[in-house]
Design a protein around this nucleic acid. Structure first.
Lengths: 103, 103
DNA sequence: ACAATAAGTCAAAAAAAGATGACTACACAA
DNA sequence: TTGTGTAGTCATCTTTTTTTGACTTATTGT
């Protein structure tokens, strides 16, 4: 009961975690938009055409879980939710830039 | 006939291409092994446990298509195939290292 | 009071990715 | 000539991801 299914979830490749978290159809795009400005659910839904509520919702949740975005409820007048890049998210920006320069 | 399905395949996010190419269950691992030594089909099939011919075959082909690996037929004695990192592949190594340092 | 917007959730369907097993083609070795 | 190793392909099945559409709850605007 110590070493069975565990071996499968163990990551042999260290970069895989980050890579995985940025994989998924809309995550890189969400990340890119988040670099520009805080995200709002309904506006990204309109901005990213071809996307859909469900997937975006899950993607945002996952990006939040891994600590790249943080969900903030803005209690002022229009009363809405914003997703902001975290420190960890910000630390990823140069890597993205490098990736872009290669392709 | 000029702007219909095309909009979907057009990439809005520049880093998405690279990210996509490294997504997939075994690609990061294949890349990592390729950094260590040229890959041989049957040995990675044995090395990466849980993997399978079909998926590895497709992954190698895709890594080749995007120009990260090159397939070389070695016509010497044991007569086999090697997959080597290309220049582009090599240029990705430092990015991988950075990714690893973040997670 | 009524409609609209924001930010979702849920179940079900469709599409994409991955796994399995059978099979091929070539080179070599016994 | 039979068997083994390398490097795959192909069709099919299963699993995972993504999409669709209906529905919800709370807050605003008219």
């Amino acid at each position: 009961m110590t070493t069975q299914k565990e071996a499968q979830s163990e990551e042999t490749c260290p970069a895989q975690g980050l890579l995985k978290l940025l994989s998924g159809k809309w995550k890189p795009e969400l990340f890119r938009l988040a670099v520009e400005a805080p995200l709002r659910f309904s506006s990204v839904l309109r901005q990213i055409e071809g996307s859909n509520k469900q997937t975006l919702s899950v993607a945002l949740k996952e990006l939040e879980e891994v600590g790249l975005l943080e969900r903030v409820v803005i209690k002022q007048k229009p009363l809405h939710v914003e997703y902001n890049l975290t420190e960890k998210g910000i630390s990823l920006i140069p890597i993205f830039k490098q990736l872009e320069s290669i392709s």
